[in-house]
């Protein structure tokens, strides 16, 4: 039983916040052209140091060697990769499927939003009334959704055996989110240019999640 990650989307479909805990398969940092807003999460923000000519071929890019199996993205604010680059050059041809099976963060966040939005519309259509989509589960994870009246969507990925964690998402909204984002005069809500990441919000969300009995 554990909690994997938290995404927050605003009403313009943009991911404004991301945090993860126990992911064994972390996201690759977002691509430069992926359209990820600044201040979403330091771990997944595209790295500016990277020369642009290398982004032409995705598989030989040094960025791809930075995915770690430990769930920690090693490419945080680092000029040079800490892990030595693999020697073999034929990786680009022999392992494209292995590498491309790990999504970059911008692709992943768009897929998450797409799934949430489609399921939400499907549940509304099937129920015939304004019923909300609550969660779905697969063999390895469960996704929970809480949508506020203002259109913010809180999405959480947890262990498949977890109970409904909607109340936790609601607590994040009514606690840290209101306190450190909505009531923060330095925060430009709905800007379409900035995420909502700030130290207080990240810290108190982290504390709240780590305090849950399901978090181990």
């Amino acid at each position: 039983m554990t909690i994997y990650s938290l995404y927050i989307y605003d009403r313009h479909c943009a991911c404004v916040y991301y945090q993860d805990w126990h992911r064994t398969k972390g996201p690759r940092p977002a691509a430069m052209e992926g359209g990820i807003l600044p201040a979403v999460s330091p771990a997944v923000y595209p790295r500016h140091e990277e020369p642009t000519f290398e982004s032409a071929s995705t598989y030989s890019s040094p960025r791809n060697t930075l995915t770690s199996s430990s769930g920690i993205v090693v490419a945080i604010n680092d000029d040079a990769p800490r892990t030595p680059l693999p020697q073999q050059t034929q990786t680009s041809t022999s392992q494209p499927s292995a590498l491309s099976s790990i999504l970059t963060f911008d692709e992943e966040s768009k897929l998450v939003y797409g799934v949430v939005l489609s399921l939400r519309n499907m549940v509304k259509k099937l129920s015939g009334k304004d019923e909300q989509f609550v969660n779905y589960k697969t063999s390895t994870y469960k996704m929970h959704l809480y949508e506020t009246l203002s259109g913010y969507k809180f999405v959480m990925l947890t262990d498949p055996n977890a109970d409904s964690l909607r109340f936790v998402l609601r607590q994040i909204y009514s606690g840290p989110f209101l306190e450190y984002v909505v009531r923060n005069p330095l925060m430009s809500m709905d800007s379409r240019e900035h995420g909502i990441d700030n130290e207080y919000f990240r810290m108190s969300t982290d504390r709240m999640i780590r305090g849950l009995t399901i978090f181990q």
Binding site: D20, H22, V115, L119, V134, Y136, K137, T138, T140
Partner: peptide, 14 residues
């Protein structure tokens, strides 16, 4: 979208 390796598709949607 699995955070931990390969996964099945959705099995139960609530």
């Amino acid at each position: 979208l699995s955070p931990t390796g390969s996964s099945s598709g959705a099995q139960e949607i609530c």
